[in-house]
Design a protein around this nucleic acid. Structure first.
Lengths: 201, 201, 201, 201
DNA sequence: CATGAATGAGCATTCATTCAT
DNA sequence: TATGAATGAATGCTCATTCAT
């Protein structure tokens, strides 16, 4: 429960909204205070430095994505489960498009911020572990662990890259192409296993 | 060609260096003037607004990558050519790591800047066209154009996603994993064609 | 005496330490709370306003100097007593150097603060009265009171000025020069009296 | 001759006025800009940091005092010259009272600022040298140089201490006492020489 | 072609203080 | 008695930009 501050949640919310709509460079203490309807001093009562505020917002954004993925109903078909997880990470509707914009902005900032880079690495590691397992199950443990890990690296990069393209261009790639591209790669990876081939290919 | 270009090139160079080392948010007219060893007024003589300066630097960064790709010696093996082009886009050494940092910073900024988004879209379109052709050749024209386009989307996303991961974390993914991941996906995509399977897999 | 005084003393102590080490401008409620190891609210429980806190610290600083002067063992030689009192006010060792830094910082602040100016004036008046008496005794009451008062003014100014020089420069004037300068002036003032001339001149 | 910025002079003037009237802690970039009638940006164009601005103002304040002392008409009576120089350093009228407030504020700040301490030390050194010479002449070279130096230390401390007392209290010491105290000490110092005794003693 | 003076909006941050508990 | 949430004004400073030269 940790009623641990509704205010704090409102602040990270405000940060995410601003990032999604105007980018990280538009995030300022003033802007956040205004968006959350509190005073400047209050923002800095909860987050003494801007870096801490951004780190909290990044963590919250990632937590949200994780919560959505974990809420996914999984079936007995491991290959299908894998597919639905990856699809969940694509910016297929407006809410996930906003999520991707936020994720991408923070990820890019991680290139020059130690605190954000730490979060980014932890996030990727967790997702990578889960997907490595998923590949193991989807291939009936026929693959050596190293190949599972490599495939996990590849598909995370794939969905992150697709999200990057979708978010940084205006409609250059549409939602059908996003899912089809994932299916195409997944079919190729799993073609020589007992996994059910995609029906969309 | 003109003498004017020399100064201008020095300025875009300075921008790229700053972006690679400290990120886009560190780019300021002052910083660029200092790095290029010219006055603050001179910078603004060539680039009246910061946005124009950034657009020029982004264009230059992309041109550099293109020049490197076009300079690649291509052989008769279309699958191998495809592989070497993609490998060229990965941050496999320090100079390409810097390039990726620059590309990524600008791409992320494109999410909220119309002028940068335009450049990003043009860049992706050009690369996509080239890779679509490459897939056509690599599969002996056995694939329908739509499948070639989809595969092109996928592999560009893959390398951009891999670059994203490499650049935004400190050594979370190493250079061998980068090339292996590309090979793994490429092998999967081309497995049912006459294309030569990767020797490194 | 009361248990309340313990905390309060710890707070004025903290203020004096900060002033001695970093100057008055570094004194903030936060800093004092941190240095004293109490909460920020506690500081303001004892000292509702910063001005009250500073006034209390100034008073405490002055009290400490007075206590040290009053603890001096006085002999029958009035001239020698005078000399030893003045010497006690010079920054001759590290602890008195800190004391002088604190005194000086507050004294300078008194130029623009009514409450501090009041304390400063009371302090000077008390010291001036004591030294006027001392001159009376040292000269065997041969001087008119007005001359004693003037001499008292002069020697207080002398030691305060010497302290000012010592504290505001790094080693520009050393401890020997401080005491010698006081002796020189004192010898000059007392030369035509029965007072014992300084042995150090 | 170095029209080197009337603006700059106006800015240091503004700083000195604010310091004289409200103390150093009231000096802010905004306040100075307002007092000088220029924009905030202009202030920081001339003085990139506050510390540089304060250092410039301190230097200017000291230069002004020096100019006034150097403009003093000196006669053949070395003792009288010495007296008139010291008198010039006392806050005997409103303009010199302002000067003293400024000098004292900066001197106190020098206790915790390296850049101000440097200026303070240079100022004292220059004055000390001049007064050491003056004592040499006033005593007909009868004193050893070390005694002249000591006497110079003493009288500078005396006038600085008197200024401190005058400035930090409201009328606790009046102008007559200031000059009389200097005369008293000077008479004492010069009593055993051929120097003319003060007529005011 | 190149400079640098001047501007004012904006930044993150620190601050003393009030108030409910 | 002691706490810390909340506030908003103020701080020094950086910024992109305009303009006269």
């Amino acid at each position: 429960m940790s009623t641990r501050s509704a205010r704090e949640a409102a602040l990270t919310d405000a940060v995410m909204t601003i990032v999604a709509e105007h980018g990280l460079e538009r995030v300022s203490v003033r802007e956040v205070a205004g968006a959350a309807g509190v005073s400047i001093g209050t923002v800095q009562h909860y987050f003494p430095t801007k870096e801490q505020m951004l780190a909290a917002a990044y963590t919250e954004a990632v937590d949200r994505i994780r919560a959505r993925v974990e809420a996914l109903p999984l079936g007995s078909d491991a290959g299908r489960n894998l597919r639905s997880v990856l699809r969940q990470l694509l910016p297929l509707d407006e809410s996930r498009r906003a999520e991707s914009r936020v994720y991408l902005a923070f990820a890019a900032a991680a290139a020059t911020s130690a605190s954000l880079s730490e979060i980014q690495q932890a996030t990727l590691t967790e997702l990578h572990t889960a997907l490595t397992d998923a590949f193991g199950r989807a291939t009936g443990e026929a693959w050596p662990p190293s190949r599972c890990r490599l495939a996990a690296h590849a598909v995370i990069a794939l969905v992150d890259g697709l999200a990057l393209h979708a978010v940084t261009t205006g409609g250059w790639i549409d939602t059908a192409q996003l899912t089809d591209a994932v299916d195409l790669v997944l079919d190729g990876l799993l073609v020589d296993t007992a996994a059910t081939p995609s029906a969309t290919a």
